[in-house]
Deep mutational scan, measured.
Amino acid sequence: MASQGTKRSYEQMETDGERQNATEIRASVGKMIDGIGRFYIQMCTELKLSDYEGRLIQNSLTIERMVLSAFDERRNKYLEEHPSAGKDPKKTGGPIYKRVDRKWMRELVLYDKEEIRRIWRQANNGDDATAGLTHMMIWHSNLNDTTYQRTRALVRTGMDPRMCSLMQGSTLPRRSGAAGAAVKGVGTMVMELIRMIKRGINDRNFWRGENGRKTRSAYERMCNILKGKFQTAAQRAMMDQVRESRNPGNAEIEDLIFLARSALILRGSVAHKSCLPACVYGPAVASGYDFEKEGYSLVGIDPFKLLQNSQVYSLIRPNENPAHKSQLVWMACNSAAFEDLRVLSFIRGTKVSPRGKLSTRGVQIASNENMDAMESSTLELRSRYWAIRTRSGGNTNQQRASAGQISVQPAFSVQRNLPFDKPTIMAAFTGNTEGRTSDMRAEIIRMMEGAKPEEMSFQGRGVFELSDERAANPIVPSFDMSNEGSYFFGDNAEEYDN
């Protein structure tokens, strides 16, 4: 993207840094990872977990959730003011799984939030270390993106479920800051804005008074975040219109849905970061690795190297396929839920299948599930090659597409044709070009129609051997075009429920 120079890199967003050079960025990201790792080690000690239990991804998720809940100030305040039966607002906890007599047992633990905050700050040299908290939120978000298709949420806001490739980060909490905003897809931002506008339509006082002023500035800020994701002048001009509207209503909703559809071809720039579970960072720190000293990046080879040398386990339900569970977590670790499966298959070195073909449910185990038949197995999170994460949407291309997802959002900077089903997408653009945004709409449609099938995206960008740390010898991959490109292809993934 041309304006790259004016933006802070995501590592800076990730670490609240002012302008830093590459070495400083690597050190501050490393410091953040160190903090998460030290916190995780301490929690495993508190909970008396064995090494194996500490490497269980379900335990990692519970521990991450506990610290996120302990620092969720708004919710904590709300819980104190609106006490609900049987919930102690000062405590947080969740299921911890232990191996007892050759069987997995679930144990519900409860801790004072104050105590968890103390352990977290102690692991982070006394700081609140917001960057580390956001990092864990993005890992949870990436896992949700890989596990669930947001059909219901899309339909509720009037969008087409086939636009799911635009929904990265749709389950990120509001408090995820600049680093969170960077990884949100165009569809996620559109959905947040539509929800806001709908509230304004239904509630006369939404934009009024002292609160209304705050609401208005939040609305304009979200519009600017979305505008910054678009790469064409016409899309940005249309966002200006939406932002400046005196009284946002149905016309703005129409414009936003139009823009979301246009992003299936004229893709937005959305950041991709490899955020790993805390149970990967903990053992690495415990083994003596100093992330701050060595430096770390979320968008280069580092996460690949770390996963190459990590042992992570997962509980497996009786009829689940461990290899499929591994694929789910591998995609989440690489922030690749909406990437082209052919690119992923090449990088991973084994075939990556669409969601609907995987015999696996989510990673988390519900409290009512029976533990008797639970097994555990090693997650295979290694890769054959590594590639640089991208934040450009890439230019655009036609490809055989599917009944489910009709476009992709690249996660890796790797040369390819970008699949999208042009006739299906263009069919949504018939007729409606009147109104105050008509010239911009016409211009956007013209650009979409001009998108050429034979153009290559990320020209000359390749993948790298894991021994090639400096990215000196790019390998331009070859793809098996007979395979499906979309992950949520004609899909039956479970729906995400809060």
Rank of each mutant, 00 (worst) to 15 (best):
A2H: 00
K7T: 00
Y10V: 14
E18T: 12
R19D: 04
A22Y: 00
G35D: 06
C44S: 03
L47H: 07
S50M: 08
E53C: 08
L56K: 03
I57W: 04
L61H: 08
L61W: 09
L68D: 02
E73N: 06
K77N: 12
K77Q: 09
L79I: 14
E81N: 12
A85I: 11
A85N: 14
A85D: 01
K103T: 11
L108C: 14
L110W: 06
D112N: 15
I116A: 08
I119R: 01
Q122W: 01
N124L: 02
G126Y: 06
A129E: 04
G132S: 14
T134R: 02
L143S: 11
N144L: 06
T146G: 02
R150H: 06
L154H: 05
R156L: 02
G158C: 13
M159D: 03
G169N: 09
R175W: 08
A179E: 12
G180T: 05
V183Q: 04
G185H: 12
T188Q: 09
E192N: 12
K198A: 08
W207Q: 09
R216K: 14
R216I: 04
R216Q: 03
S217I: 13
R221H: 04
M222Q: 02
R236F: 06
R236H: 04
S245V: 01
P248D: 04
N250S: 12
A251G: 05
A251H: 03
D255E: 12
I257G: 07
L259F: 02
A260C: 14
R261W: 11
L264C: 07
R267H: 05
S269R: 02
S274I: 07
V280T: 12
A284M: 14
V285S: 11
S287M: 11
D290E: 14
K293M: 08
S297D: 03
S297T: 15
S297N: 05
P303N: 06
F304H: 05
N309V: 08
V312I: 15
A323K: 05
N334S: 13
F338D: 03
E339G: 08
L344D: 12
V352K: 12
G356S: 07
L358R: 04
E369D: 08
E375V: 10
L381I: 08
R382P: 05
R384P: 09
A387H: 03
R391K: 15
G393S: 15
R400T: 07
A401F: 00
S402L: 02
Q405V: 02
S413M: 05
S413H: 05
V414D: 00
Q415H: 04
Q415F: 12
D421S: 15
M426W: 03
M426N: 10
A427F: 00
G431T: 07
E434V: 13
M440F: 13
R441W: 09
A442F: 00
A442T: 15
E443S: 09
M447C: 09
M447S: 12
A451D: 05
K452Q: 11
E455G: 14
R461N: 04
G462C: 08
G462A: 11
V463Y: 12
V463I: 15
F464T: 05
L466D: 00
A471W: 01
A472V: 09
P474A: 15
I475Y: 06
V476N: 00
M481P: 01
S486E: 01
E494K: 15
E494H: 12
